[in-house]
């Protein structure tokens, strides 16, 4: 009987440490539209996130490329048309900065800021919404405020050390995929001089959970040549 109690306790403890939104594999199509000074650029890509931190991104337009990264920051960039690859190791290239990766791993509360060294500095309410402020030990880095609705982050603003709002991020159209809630629409507005602003809209679609797409396991061919970065785009 004591053994059964121990097993139940261990199982409950293990369950408590599994992130609420954890999924094994998540993929999505992503369209990023950037508007600045009347000009629009569109990038389309598909992301393939695995719970072990591996992220495969297939850029589709305007050029087809693959990038493969992991949570440690090991990064490969592969051009299938020329069979060239660039490999890098840098913790700043970690896969944990991708929105899908953040939500699939359950780091919803701070949008992954904690992973980057940010700490919760203040909690309060504004206009009926819960608002949390996060600060980084480096005073040069911006302060971040996140606003929640129904425990989901819907708004995020970056405040410079001078107290000016640098940019705002709006997350909307949350939908449930398995155990994960994911915002299918992200809108970023940055503030330049005067009223000159830039808008970036990111739309996630075709979110797939735990499918067996071969892209999750994409690896760079062994015979790929080192990428010549100073060559013109082909």
């Amino acid at each position: 009987m004591a053994l059964i109690r121990k097993i139940i306790c261990l199982a409950l403890l293990a369950a408590a440490f599994v992130p609420a939104g954890a999924q094994r594999k998540v993929s999505a199509d992503v369209e990023v539209k950037t508007v600045a000074k009347g000009k629009l650029s569109t990038v389309t890509k598909s992301v393939y996130c695995t719970s072990n931190g591996r992220l495969v991104t297939l850029y589709k337009t305007p050029l087809q490329y693959y990038s493969i990264s992991n949570a440690k920051g090991e990064y490969q960039l592969y051009n299938p048309s020329t069979n060239e690859v660039m490999s890098q190791y840098d913790p700043s290239l970690s896969s944990t900065t991708e929105l899908v990766s953040i939500f699939m791993s359950g780091r919803v509360d701070d949008l992954g800021l904690g992973y980057l060294g940010y700490r919760l500095s203040e909690t309060g309410r504004e206009d009926g919404y819960v608002k949390k402020s996060f600060s980084h030990p480096d005073p040069l880095l911006p302060k971040v405020n996140i606003v929640y609705e129904n425990y989901l982050p819907i708004y995020c603003e970056y405040i410079s050390s001078e107290g000016k709002t640098i940019s705002r991020k709006y997350l909307s159209n949350f939908q449930q995929f398995g155990r994960m809630m994911l915002p299918l629409r992200s809108t970023d507005i940055s503030y330049g001089s005067g009223r000159d602003s830039t808008v970036v809209r990111t739309i996630y679609s075709s979110v797939r959970i735990d499918t067996d797409d071969p892209a999750f396991d994409f690896t760079v061919p062994a015979d790929a040549k080192p990428m010549k970065l100073d060559a013109p785009a082909k």
Binding site: V32, T34, A36, K39, S41, V43, D90, S92, S94, T97, L116, G117, Y118, H136, D138, L141, P142, C156, Y158, I166, S167, R168, K169, S186, D188, I189, S190, T198, V200, T202
Partner: peptide
């Protein structure tokens, strides 16, 4: 790199505008 990474490429905005320009 830290500024871009810690802010997700300036919430994607810095990255987006840089790329566009």
């Amino acid at each position: 790199w830290a500024v871009y990474t810690f802010t997700g490429g300036g919430l994607g905005v810095l990255w987006g505008v840089d790329t566009l320009l």
